[in-house]
Simulated scan of single mutants.
Amino acid sequence: MKKEIIITTLALFTGFLCSNTLYGQNFYKEKISRNQYLQAGLGLGAMYADNSGRFRGLEVKTGPSVSFTYGRKIHSNVDLRGNLGYQRTQSQDQNYFTNQVVQSWRENGQAVGSKNNLIYLDMMPTLHIVGSTNHTQRKRVNLYLGTGLGLLFNLSEVTNLSENGSERKKRSQAVPYIPVRGGLSYRLNLYTDIAIEGSVLMTFSDELDGNVGFNRFNDYPVSGQIVFRRYLNTIKSVD
């Protein structure tokens, strides 16, 4: 009986030591903040452009929008991120516009239609409303907003009208832009967030759709996405 008590006591003591060792390792692992993350987003996009339709009334055509992001925290409230994305947009149908508008475009050599494949790359600091010094301390819900500089590549097909009918031309161009991007994030678990994110790419060109001067501003691609963000463990020796 005495032997059984000694064995049981040793087993409990050993289990206690192992438990504390594992807890200590886990505590050490989480004490080192995960300051880098990867993010992927999927959603829909459109473009504010001369032949895209009435944007204020949401009478525009939408297309797929995807993005990939690498970010790194540089302050408790600020991270620096690089974004790579793709968006497809197209103009409204020709019969959406009045005959007078279409005739004016034909006479001035402006495109009545366009299909655009937009590839964009930008860098931007992002401000998080609620800051945190460690990934374990971040709030369940947070707001963020940022702006920066980027370059957009547009591979498009535009349609012009002439006396001989319609003519389609393929074009390519690269234009700089200022991204304005913000979102509302929700913490799913210790390492993962989900967010609703919106972007406006304020380009320095009014020629993305092959039509110039019909609207007040330049051509601005916009998108809304659902994104998943994963905080990275850079300490390879710690599981």
Rank of each mutant, 00 (worst) to 15 (best):
K3W: 13
K3S: 14
E4T: 01
E4K: 06
I5E: 15
I6E: 15
A11D: 14
T14L: 14
G15Y: 11
G15E: 08
C18S: 14
N20L: 15
T21L: 14
L22S: 12
L22W: 15
Y23H: 07
Q25H: 04
Q25G: 02
N26E: 13
Y28H: 14
Y28S: 10
K29L: 10
E30S: 05
S33K: 05
S33A: 15
R34M: 02
N35Q: 06
N35P: 00
Q36F: 09
Q39N: 08
A40Y: 09
L44A: 03
G45D: 04
Y48L: 09
Y48P: 02
N51I: 11
N51R: 04
G53C: 06
F55H: 01
R56W: 13
G57P: 02
T62N: 09
T62E: 09
G63M: 03
V66S: 05
V66I: 14
V66N: 05
F68H: 02
T69D: 08
R72T: 13
K73Y: 15
I74V: 15
I74E: 08
I74C: 13
N77K: 09
V78S: 05
D79R: 02
L80H: 04
R81H: 08
L84H: 02
G85H: 09
Y86S: 00
T89D: 01
Q90V: 04
S91V: 06
D93L: 12
Q94H: 00
N95M: 11
Y96G: 07
F97W: 12
N99C: 06
N99D: 13
R106E: 15
R106N: 11
N108E: 04
N108Q: 09
G109E: 02
G113L: 14
N117W: 07
N117D: 03
N117H: 09
M124E: 07
P125T: 00
P125Y: 01
T126P: 01
H128P: 03
V130N: 07
G131F: 14
G131Y: 13
S132R: 00
T133W: 10
N134A: 11
N134H: 12
N134F: 11
T136Y: 11
R140M: 08
Y144D: 06
G148C: 09
G148P: 06
L152S: 07
L152K: 01
N154E: 00
N154P: 10
S156F: 08
E157W: 05
E157N: 13
T159P: 14
N160Q: 12
S162P: 01
S162G: 10
N164G: 02
E167Y: 10
K170H: 10
R171K: 10
Q173E: 06
V175F: 14
Y177D: 02
V180D: 08
G182I: 11
S185C: 07
S185R: 05
L188E: 01
N189K: 02
L190H: 05
Y191W: 08
D193W: 03
I194L: 14
G198Q: 03
S199A: 13
S199T: 12
L201R: 05
L201E: 00
M202L: 15
T203F: 14
F204L: 12
D206N: 07
E207I: 01
L208H: 04
D209R: 00
G210C: 03
N211S: 06
N211G: 02
G213F: 06
G213H: 00
R216I: 11
F217P: 05
P221C: 13
V227W: 11
V227F: 11
F228K: 01
F228H: 05
F228M: 11
R229T: 00
R229F: 08
R230Y: 15
T234V: 11
I235S: 12
K236A: 12
D239V: 12
